[in-house]
C-alpha cells in the first residue's frame, strides 16, 4: 500500500490553498462587475423601454429619452473607426510585413507604444488644436471623431501587429520559396489567417471610443441638441452632436431634479451597447477559431 508521506500531504495542502486563493481572486474580479450591472438595471427599470431609446431628452433633460445622445455616440464611433481602422490595420501590415528595421520603424513603434498610454484629455487638447482650430473643422462630429481616431489608432496598430505575428514565419517563407510576392503572401496567407484577431482588436476599440468623454467634450459633443426622432440620418457630420457619455455626465452632475431612473437608464444603454459589441467580437472570435487551419 502506498502511504502518504509528510511531504506529499504538505504539497496537497498547498495545492488546495492556492487553488482556493486564485478562485477567490477571480470572484473578486467578477463580483463588482455583476453588482454594477445588477444595480444599474435595478435602478433603471422604471424608465427602461424602447420609447426611452427613441425619443429626445425633454424638459431641460429632466424627462424624455436618449435618442439624440444615442445616435450621436453611434456617429462618433462609426466615423472614428472608419478613419482609424483602415489606417491602423494598413500601417500595422506595413510595419510588420514590409518594413525593414530602420530608424523610421523604430520611431514609429516607439510612438505607437507611447501614444497608447497618453491620457485622453491630452488627445482632447490635440484635437482642439489640430482639427477644430487648425484644420478649421470647428466643433463638429468630424473633429470629435478624428480626435477619437487618433486615440484609438495606436491600440489598433498594436492589436493588429499581435494578430499578424501569430501567423508563423514559416508560412511566409514557404510562399516566398514558391515565387509569391510579399503582397500575394499577405493576401492569400497572412490576412486570411489573422483576420479574426484583427477584427477583434478593432471591435474592442468601439467600447473605448463610446465611453470616453474628454476627447469629444471640446471637439464636437454638446450638452443639448434636439434631432429628428427615429431618423438615422438626423446628424450632419459637420455639425455638433450629443453623446451618451457626455449626456450621462451632464444629467448626473449639472442638471438638478432629474428623474432618478434617467441617469441609470443612460448608463444601462451605454454599458449595454458596449457589452453587446464586445459580445459580438467574442462570438466572431470563437466562430473563426473553430475554422482555424493549423
Amino acid at each position: 500500500m502506498f502511504t502518504e508521506t509528510e511531504i506529499s500531504k504538505h504539497k496537497r495542502w498547498t495545492e488546495n490553498v492556492m487553488r482556493i486563493f486564485f478562485l477567490v481572486m477571480t470572484s473578486l474580479m467578477i463580483l463588482p462587475l455583476l453588482l454594477i450591472i445588477g444595480y444599474l438595471i435595478y435602478k433603471a427599470l422604471p424608465v427602461l423601454s424602447l420609447e426611452f431609446l427613441f425619443t429626445n431628452p425633454k424638459d431641460n433633460m429632466r424627462a424624455g429619452g436618449l435618442w439624440a445622445p444615442f445616435l450621436g455616440t453611434i456617429y462618433l464611433v462609426v466615423v472614428s473607426l472608419l478613419v482609424s481602422a483602415p489606417i491602423g490595420v494598413f500601417a500595422a501590415v506595413y510595419l510588420n510585413e514590409y518594413a525593414r528595421e530602420s530608424w523610421f520603424t523604430r520611431i514609429t513603434n516607439l510612438a505607437v507604444v507611447n501614444l497608447a498610454g497618453v491620457p485622453s484629455i491630452v488627445h482632447a487638447l490635440f484635437g482642439v488644436g489640430a482639427f477644430v482650430l487648425f484644420a478649421g473643422l470647428g466643433e463638429s462630429i468630424l473633429a470629435a471623431s478624428l480626435t477619437l481616431a487618433i486615440m484609438t489608432l495606436p491600440v489598433i496598430i498594436a492589436s493588429t501587429t499581435e494578430a499578424l505575428k501569430a501567423v508563423p514565419m514559416s508560412f511566409r517563407e514557404a510562399c516566398w520559396n514558391l515565387g509569391a510576392t510579399r503582397w500575394q503572401t499577405i493576401r492569400r496567407i497572412v490576412i486570411p489567417n489573422s483576420i479574426s484577431g484583427i477584427l477583434t482588436g478593432v471591435i474592442l476599440q468601439v467600447s473605448r471610443a463610446a465611453g470616453e468623454t474628454a476627447p469629444i467634450m471640446f471637439t464636437g459633443a454638446v450638452f443639448y441638441k434636439a434631432i429628428a426622432e427615429g431618423d438615422l440620418l438626423a446628424y450632419n457630420i459637420t455639425e455638433q452632436c450629443m453623446a451618451l457619455s457626455l449626456h450621462l455626465f451632464t444629467i448626473s452632475t449639472q442638471v438638478p431634479d432629474v428623474t432618478e431612473g434617467i441617469p441609470y437608464g443612460t448608463a444601462v444603454v451605454l454599458v449595454g451597447s458596449v457589452l453587446l459589441v464586445n459580445a459580438t467580437s467574442i462570438v466572431l472570435r470563437v466562430y473563426l477559431r473553430t475554422r482555424k487551419k493549423w
Partner: peptide, 25 residues
C-alpha cells in the same frame, strides 16, 4: 523548387497548396 527541413503545409486545402505557385504565376 525548395523543400525546407520541417514540413510546412500552408493553411490551405491540399489542392490549393499544390496550386498555389501556378496560381501566383
Amino acid at each position: 523548387g525548395m523543400v525546407q527541413p520541417l514540413p510546412v503545409g500552408l493553411p490551405l486545402s491540399i489542392y490549393d497548396n499544390v496550386a498555389f505557385a501556378p496560381r501566383t504565376a
